[in-house]
Design a protein around this nucleic acid. Sequence first.
RNA 1: GGAGACAUGGCCAAGUGGUAAGGCAGGAGCCUGCAAAGCUCUUAUCCCCGGUUCAAAUCCGGGUGUCUCCUCCA
Length: 432
Amino acid sequence: MLKLFNSLTNNLEVFEPLETNKVKMYVCGPTVYDHAHLGHARCYITWDVLYRYLKFAGYEVKYCRNVTDVDDKILKKASERGVDPSVVTEEFYASFDNSMKGLNCLKPDIEPFATKTIGEMIAITKTLIDKGFAYESDGDVYFEVKKYSKYGALSKQPIDDLMAGARVETDEKKRSPLDFALWKKDGKFGYNSPWGVGRPGWHIECSAMAKKFLGPQIDIHAGGADLTFPHHENEIAQSNCASDCEFVKYWLHNGFVTINKEKMSKSLGNFLTIDELLKTYDSNTIRFFILTNHYRMPVEFSEVALESAKAGVKRLINAGKKGEGVDEEATEAFKTSMDEDMNTSKALAVLFSLVSGDETKANTLYRLGSVLGFDFTKKEIVLSKEDLALIEERNLARAEKNWAKSDEIRDLFLERGIVLKDGKDGTTWEAL
RNA sequence: GGAGACAUGGCCAAGUGGUAAGGCAGGAGCCUGCAAAGCUCUUAUCCCCGGUUCAAAUCCGGGUGUCUCCUCCA
């Protein structure tokens, strides 16, 4: 019985999808104006694991993760470079896609682009105006927050407190500083709409894409904790008011990656990009590092932590080679752990329980490992005739106790990433 | 100012009432020409104070410290 922590109720809840055995899940995807960093990696690895686990648990899952390709930052970058915004978005979408592959994240079933969903955004905006939840103001359209009484339910912020703490600069076009844009006038990069040429606000993009590709009601909506307010709060307001139903059943949020105890973010400039990180650490290591912590807790980045993860992965990979076999008990323990709001830390401990002893239940290790997105199978090294001859030469040297020569040859292989191991039954080799 | 979260061994981390999972690092031993890999053994009373209870890391109250959100942000 899967339980998930619902940010809306602040409670651990039994997961019961709207439609038996089927799950509709939406994850806020990237705004493609720069390379993705480790913080993004954590987010997408976390929800990739949920996606994999739901499928493993027998659900039929429809996973939608959008690409925001119309946004202020994109336009800013495009004008700085003097190129069309599409040049920017294509470049960084490719980079993002590459990073996801590098992290061994499964491709979502649907990956919509905001620019291809403008019609739906306009339709929702129109509905909201017609129903009196939104108003037009000089080519802009704003959602009127005070019209939605439950506003603040997700972020647990009473509207009055939001007002008091609002650091938003007052805008003559808005009736209240809390009102947010559904549509912004933009003569330069805009699209035609009933309110003139303009482009959608960020929040409406996700509402529209979720509705178009998954429907007006979905089971899971996930994303980084920093999206809770205002992004998700606004999505709820828009979608609930436009569709007259509860947009999302379970709101899930992942914690941040920190560095020096501070949130890793673009604005602070304290980030490491995924492609940079992948030069030093493979996807197994990065995933292990992320998954040792519970997804709602912060994860502090450090070299030591990554090295520790790397060593753990190495042990699992080596263990996988001695033996095969299955362990139903461990599989049950794994499920129990994952059912507890995705306790990946416990799930990892289960993987190690398959290892202890001199024989590993490798089939189960690979199977459960793949639910966490690991690939513990090791590449076979195929040696050339020359290499085999060299090993033969080394064995002769060893027989003559010519250790200097023996070690020299071993180092030769090591430089190529091949480890030679001398066992009772002769010399074996494998990738470093 | 408002809202929320966290504090467990050298490092990371699970554990929400019944006497501290797991990983990394370290130590001892076996194996090895030496390594590598592997195997065996080995290291904690849970930030502080008070309370509830037969029993608390776990519940309650009060401290202290750290982080996050309230502005674009995964």
